[in-house]
Simulated assay, not measured.
Amino acid sequence: MKYVAFLDILGFKNILDKMDQKAAQNFIMRFSKTIFQVFQSFEKKKAFKVKGYIVSDSLVLYSEDSSEKALVNLIEVVETICRDEYIQNNILIRGGIAKGDFARIKASGLINLEKALIVGKSYVKAYQLEGVNKVIGINLSKEVYQDILDYENQLDSEFSHWSQIKSKAIMYKNKKDTYYLLKYITLDFLLDDNNLSRFVNLANQSNWLEHYYNTLSFALQKERSSKKKKKLFVKIVQIVSDSKDNSLELFIENAFKDGVEKYFKAYFLKHIGKSLLGGIK
């Protein structure tokens, strides 16, 4: 048994459509370089239990076993890669993490044709989880989510920061199904001016797809500070308003599409209502 993560660049095809071959190569090289640097930093740690490989715009990571340490290692390296790609390269990543049997089998063949075989239901599950819903984050299988809860409740746990990991894990429902998400874009992360400006710019370029609103929705959940929530909306409106196009109208209009989480719609309406009442006063 192992933990397996599948990570993928959001909107990769659309990104490449806007580039020539040289620009596309540079883009992938920057993507790969960031992953390499993250792995270098983690491999310095004692008994690091994660391996992986890059295939074009995708990254497959897998643990050596299904121990508590292996899951911590995998979650930490996934979160670091996702955030560093975002900060350094303006790349947003979606992914999935599953638990189960997994093996990468080396296969001999022609000298100029490299090949390796991936075997395991956990890889297939992680791959399927990546795009299961319109949100930017890491979808978890039920087993992985339950392991996070179980490890946090263990009194003899080797790690003291399970509560921090749990705070980023969200259980949510879409229609009749229940899903589990590990969010790497949190409210505190977004409240950094550079991170929020980058997020709004990427959303504008994508015409404010549902993914961006839902990411904001999950960032707001489990956050107790109403001041922080208000600050986020004030900053977003300010950034959008300062843009040269009509992105404020688009931001408001698309916020109420069917695919946007109800939580976001409710909180955004509440914010608009308070803003209007404040203006009347």
Rank of each mutant, 00 (worst) to 15 (best):
K270E: 14
M19P: 03
L216T: 03
N201C: 09
F42I: 01
N201W: 00
S41C: 09
K125Q: 14
I9K: 04
F268L: 15
L182D: 01
K175R: 12
F218N: 10
N194R: 08
F42V: 02
I148Y: 02
E114I: 02
S217A: 15
F233P: 02
R224T: 08
Q25N: 03
Y3I: 08
N204A: 08
Q25C: 04
L113W: 06
K175E: 07
I136K: 09
S275E: 14
V135Q: 05
S163D: 04
G131S: 15
D258H: 11
L250Y: 06
D242R: 10
L7K: 03
F189L: 06
K49T: 10
G137Y: 13
E68A: 04
K33Q: 11
S163M: 13
L250T: 12
L232S: 05
G11D: 03
I9G: 05
R94H: 02
S108K: 10
S197L: 08
S206K: 08
Y3L: 08
K265R: 15
L129G: 09
T186M: 03
I75C: 00
I93V: 07
E64L: 15
Q154T: 05
E152A: 06
Y123L: 12
F268Q: 14
V119P: 02
E210D: 13
L181C: 01
V240G: 03
N139A: 10
A116V: 05
M29S: 13
S56N: 14
V237D: 02
D177R: 10
H211Y: 12
K115H: 08
W162F: 02
E85M: 15
K281I: 14
L149R: 02
G11A: 01
I28H: 00
N112P: 00
E43G: 05
H211A: 11
S66L: 09
K18A: 13
S241T: 11
Y263G: 06
F264R: 15
A107R: 15
I54R: 11
G52I: 13
E158V: 06
E43N: 12
K166G: 01
L248E: 00
K44D: 08
A116L: 01
S67A: 06
R198T: 13
Y127F: 10
C82W: 09
Y267P: 13
H211F: 10
Y123T: 06
K46E: 13
K176N: 07
F27I: 04
V55P: 02
R30E: 07
G137F: 13
R94N: 04
H161K: 10
D245A: 11
K33W: 11
E114Q: 10
V260Y: 03
D258K: 14
G120W: 11
S58T: 12
L129V: 04
V200Q: 00
N153H: 09
I75H: 01
N194I: 14
G279V: 11
F42R: 04
Y53V: 10
K257G: 14
G120D: 03
Q21N: 09
A103V: 14
A126G: 04
E130P: 06
L191T: 09
N204V: 08
N112I: 12
K244T: 03
L250K: 12
L7Q: 07
R104I: 11
S275A: 15
K166T: 06
E64W: 14
S163W: 11
L117P: 08
A23M: 09
R224L: 13
F102P: 07
A203T: 04
I87P: 01
Y62A: 05
K45S: 06
H271M: 13
V119R: 08
Y62V: 14
K227D: 04
